[in-house]
Simulated scan of single mutants.
Amino acid sequence: MTEPLTSPFKAGPGGVMTDDVGVITGDLELRTTLTDGAVAVEVRYEGADEWYRLSAADCQLADQKDHEAVHHALLGVLHRPEG
């Protein structure tokens, strides 16, 4: 397992769908964790303790060097402060 990557973001209108608690909104954090080529994607309320699995976002990488690029691509999709 490599070191998880985390980034703050603001969810757009409608929020972000999680597997654990449904939709969450507002100021959030994204965390991606790479283990044996598999990327697990989680979000949480900024500064909170509990992470929630982001619905349908996990993926398998052919090269672990792509982890950072995948993290930033997800952040680009999720960070929509103005909709």
Rank of each mutant, 00 (worst) to 15 (best):
T18F: 03
E46D: 14
Q60V: 14
E42M: 05
Y45Q: 15
D63T: 09
A38M: 13
D19H: 14
A62T: 08
G15H: 04
E68L: 11
A48P: 03
L54Y: 05
Q64C: 14
Y45E: 14
D27H: 08
D19R: 12
A62W: 02
T32P: 02
Y45C: 10
Y52I: 05
V23G: 04
T25C: 12
D63P: 09
G37Y: 02
G22Y: 05
E42W: 08
R31C: 10
E29L: 00
T25I: 11
T18C: 03
V41P: 00
L28V: 08
M17I: 15
A57M: 10
E29K: 07
G12N: 02
Y45D: 15
D63A: 11
K10W: 13
K10F: 14
D19C: 10
K10C: 05
M17R: 06
L28P: 05
Q60Y: 14
R53P: 07
T33F: 08
R31A: 05
A62K: 09
G47E: 12
T33P: 07
D49T: 10
A57F: 05
D27M: 14
V41H: 01
A56Q: 11
V43D: 02
G22L: 07
T32H: 08
K65P: 01
R31I: 12
L61E: 02
C59S: 11
A69F: 12
I24V: 13
T35E: 13
G47D: 12
G12M: 03
G14E: 06
T33I: 10
D20G: 09
G12R: 01
L28D: 01
R31E: 08
W51L: 02
G14Q: 03
A11R: 04
G15L: 03
G12D: 04
A56C: 15
K65I: 11
V43Q: 00
K65Y: 04
E42V: 10
A69M: 11
A69P: 13
C59G: 04
E68G: 03
D63K: 12
V23M: 10
T32R: 06
G22R: 08
T18M: 01
Y52G: 06
Y52F: 06
V41D: 00
E46N: 15
Y45S: 12
W51F: 12
V16K: 00
A38F: 06
L54E: 00
V23A: 12
V39C: 00
E29G: 03
A48Y: 13
I24P: 07
G15R: 02
W51T: 00
V21R: 04
T25R: 15
Y45M: 14
D63S: 13
G26N: 07
T32A: 03
A69I: 15
A40G: 06
E46F: 15
D49E: 13
K10M: 12
V21S: 07
E42I: 04
A56G: 12
M17N: 05
G15D: 01
V21K: 14
L54Q: 00
A57C: 07
A62S: 15
D66R: 03
V41F: 01
P13R: 15
Q64S: 13
Y45G: 10
R53S: 10
E68Y: 09
L54R: 02
Y45L: 13
D20C: 05
L61Y: 07
Q60S: 03
V41M: 01
R31K: 14
L54H: 03
E29C: 06
D27L: 14
A40Q: 14
T35F: 04
D63V: 12
D36K: 15
G12H: 04
L34S: 11
E46W: 15
E42R: 06
A57R: 07
T25L: 10
Y52H: 13
D20A: 06
I24E: 06
